[in-house]
């Protein structure tokens, strides 16, 4: 399982200091690098019961955006992690989910176009089991589920704006929910659809200086 997880800074879209306008002329704006993270397992299917029901371990995968690294499950009650994944559900480290200052909202638009988090944005916090900062459900948060093909597709033009456990800001775009970073074709077998799902590929940009600009 661990082997399949890779974190590579595949591309470094250096967002030029477009934000260095008059307002922030006194602060040094560090260029924020967008990182690509591939195949983060999110409670993947490990087998099937005799009745054919998929079996999973039922555990979240914790991730630190600050360190760009996985966080051990034993640290779930700490501020070491910023987001956690289990199937299509994404937690932020705050509210009912964690001890941090985490929160999030889903922004409609393009990743590159989101250069400053709008001042009137409202960060939501997790309130399990009914409401999560990143809304669950097909077509409501970050993905759609196709009843006919049983495939999960991340919605295009959605940016998850994250407040990390330590109150810093990050933006992320999920590009794929299947192993290898490519959504399976509709013709894939049911078995493939079961076992290759729940692997997140996303890009994110983390702003360590505490500002809302990227």
């Amino acid at each position: 399982m661990k082997k399949s997880f890779q974190s590579i800074a595949l591309l470094s879209i250096v967002l030029m200091s477009v934000v260095a306008c008059s307002k922030s002329s006194t602060t040094t704006v560090l260029p924020v690098t967008a990182l690509l993270v591939k195949d983060i397992p999110a409670d993947t299917v490990v087998g099937l019961s005799a009745q054919g029901v998929p079996i999973t371990n039922g555990k979240y995968t914790f991730y630190s955006l600050e360190k760009n690294a996985l966080v051990s499950n034993t640290d779930s009650a700490s501020t070491k992690w910023d987001i956690a994944f289990m199937s299509t559900r994404i937690l932020t480290n705050g509210g009912t989910s964690g001890v941090g200052q985490g929160g999030a909202f889903v922004y409609t638009g393009l990743f590159d176009d989101l250069k400053t988090i709008p001042t009137d944005s409202v960060f939501k916090t997790d309130n399990a089991p009914t409401a999560y900062a990143i809304t669950t459900g097909s077509g409501k948060g970050w993905y759609t589920y196709d009843q006919l093909t049983s495939l999960i597709t991340p919605l295009a033009g959605r940016v998850l704006v994250i407040r990390t456990a330590s109150g810093k800001y990050a933006k992320m775009e999920i590009t794929c929910y299947y192993k290898g970073g490519v959504t399976l074709p509709a013709s894939a077998t049911d078995m493939e659809k079961l076992t290759k799902q729940r692997y997140y590929t996303f890009r994110f940009a983390y702003q360590p200086n505490g500002t809302k600009t990227f």
Binding site: L11, L110, F111, L155, A156, G157, R158, E173, T175, C176, G181, T201, R203
Partner: peptide
């Protein structure tokens, strides 16, 4: 309405 480019990133 958005779609995705060859890298899987969103675009208009």
């Amino acid at each position: 309405v958005y779609t995705r480019d060859a890298n899987g990133y969103s675009k208009l």
